[in-house]
């Protein structure tokens, strides 16, 4: 594409990644979560693909599928983490450790270090959705793109 699109993509791609990370990270406090943040970050990836062509990203296909498998395995492992009680039991909530802070009842300003395994699951699912949607868009672009620069 033209230099205008490339320059705007260079500016907007980090911003979209950071915003996607923010939506994933605050998934247990504000509207959003893993799926939404992953979709936002994947839209940034699609923008790079439109601006710079698919050939330059062709060797990243293995990385994307590895990242997606890693996210799926991490999500299932976090589900198995609570197997002492039940599957998907949240044993980290209110435990005092990682993401185990106390939360006051009722409306509150929101503390990031709460909610147990939910933020970790948000990150796993966010990486999974980011890699999955990015891989789908990349495969579409690679299949049809014989004559792009």
């Amino acid at each position: 594409m033209t230099v205008v699109v490339r320059t705007i993509t260079r500016i907007l791609f980090p911003i979209s990644l950071v915003f996607g990370g923010y939506v994933i990270m605050h998934g247990h406090l504000t509207p959003g979560g893993g799926f939404q943040g992953g979709a936002v970050a994947a839209s940034g990836l699609a923008m790079v693909l439109v601006a710079f062509g698919a050939k330059r990203l062709a060797e990243k296909k293995g990385l994307l599928s590895a990242l997606e498998s890693l996210g799926g395995v991490a999500f299932a492992a976090l589900g198995f983490l609570g197997l002492g009680l039940t599957f998907f039991a949240n044993i980290l909530a209110r435990s005092g450790g990682l993401f185990g802070g106390p939360v006051p009842y009722g409306p509150n300003p929101g503390e990031l270090n709460t909610a147990g395994t939910l933020p970790l699951m948000n990150w796993a699912v966010g990486f999974k959705v980011l890699a999955g949607l990015g891989a789908v868009v990349l495969l579409f672009a690679l299949f049809g793109g014989e004559n792009d620069r």
Binding site: H28, G72, F88, L118, K128, G132
Partner: peptide
């Protein structure tokens, strides 16, 4: 029970975690 402010996230990832597991399988 979960120390989560966002009730929707609490349902998606804990109360109905099996649904989300199947959803991740569908995406994969």
């Amino acid at each position: 029970e979960l120390a989560a402010n966002n009730v929707v996230t609490a349902i998606v990832f804990d109360y109905r975690g099996y649904d989300t597991l199947g959803e991740a399988t569908v995406l994969f």
